[in-house]
């Protein structure tokens, strides 16, 4: 089995392969690189433009390029890709419906020791408020490549939140269903846990811990918002109890989105949400991502204990 690679490298490797034959693809980088982007700069220099650390202009230039038929990928560190130009994204991409792909690297605490300026805990809430923008929250390298391929023809603007760390494969053998927008990794009739991004891996760990106690916790990777809400709610209703887990503040995040989908369809079942607080609080804890998570009470053991208690 090949060593897993980062989502970033997987994403840009795929884009490089496609861009060789598809001149519409242009990378608009806020001074961010990657090995595959070095190859694009070397082999396809006309399809790479460095706008510098100027995210507002990055979104604007990408949108102008898209209006002329290009498929631009605007690339920056995620909090800056999302929040700095957000009002311009709103006008160009949500209101004017111009399809660009915003690629942010650094979901959640991926930049673990960089402090709260580089942590990303509000982006799902912000971006899912906009019509005409899809969020793709990737959990492994295979998914990142699949999302890259989809992005080249996605009908509306697309925000891709990539993790910075190399994570194990969970989707290498699966064909992702972009109509559904979620993948059932482990089915269960007892209880299910919906997670996204890095937290999908933690959800699998929690499920493993609970298995030892005879608890069968299902895991769903919700990787796209909006998703096929009818299908997701139908899936959720296959078990009587639901949990959500996100590396994000609770207001407006993944759990909120799931609650809305359930409520809008009159599906009543108990839901427990795990995330970085409600209201959230920013973290100055150092020593690695799991140390930070533990400070929020989100170690796998703690989550497993909370789930166990809720299921009693």
């Amino acid at each position: 089995m090949p060593n897993p690679i980062s989502q970033r490298d997987s994403f840009w490797n795929k884009i490089y392969e496609i861009a060789k034959d598809d001149r519409r693809i242009v990378i608009v980088s806020a001074d961010m690189g990657a090995p595959a982007l070095d190859r694009i700069r070397r082999d396809l220099p006309g399809q790479f433009v460095n706008v510098g650390i100027a995210e507002q202009n990055g979104v604007l230039v990408a949108s102008g390029l898209a209006r002329e038929g290009k498929r631009p990928f605007f690339y920056a560190i995620a909090p800056f890709a999302v929040f700095r130009p957000v009002e311009l994204t709103r006008v160009n991409n949500a209101i004017m419906k111009i399809p660009i792909t915003i690629v942010g690297v650094g979901a959640g605490f991926s930049y673990e020791d960089s402090g709260p300026t580089h942590h990303l805990l509000e982006d799902i809430a912000v971006m899912r408020a906009f019509p005409n923008i899809t969020i793709h929250s990737t959990s492994d390298a295979a998914m990142a490549a699949a999302v890259a391929e989809q992005s080249c023809n996605w009908p509306v603007a697309n925000y891709v939140r990539l993790d910075r760390q190399v994570l194990p494969d969970v989707h290498a053998q699966t064909q992702l269903d972009f109509k559904a927008g979620f993948a059932v990794l482990r089915p269960s009739k007892q209880a299910q846990l919906v997670a996204t991004g890095y937290m999908v891996h933690k959800a699998l760990q929690v499920a493993d811990l609970l298995k030892k106690d005879g608890i069968d916790l299902g895991v769903i990777d919700l990787f796209q918002l909006p998703c096929d809400a009818d299908a997701l709610v139908k899936q959720i209703q296959t078990a009587p109890k639901l949990f959500t887990l996100e590396e994000h503040f609770l207001p407006g995040g993944l759990g909120s989105a799931v609650l809305e989908m359930l409520a809008d369809r009159g599906a009543a079942l108990p839901v427990g949400r795990f995330g970085m607080g409600n209201p959230g609080s920013y973290s100055y804890v150092y020593g690695g991502r799991e140390t930070i998570h533990a400070s929020y009470g989100l170690s796998p053991e703690q989550i497993a204990a909370d789930v166990r208690k809720a299921l009693k």
Binding site: V26, G46, Q56, V59, L60, V61, S63, L65, E68
Partner: peptide
């Protein structure tokens, strides 16, 4: 209507013309 928006968009269009 959002100020500071159209100018960068125009630059993107001009860049596209150069590319094509």
């Amino acid at each position: 209507g959002s100020l500071g928006q159209g100018f960068g968009f125009a630059a993107g269009m001009a860049l596209a013309a150069k590319m094509d």
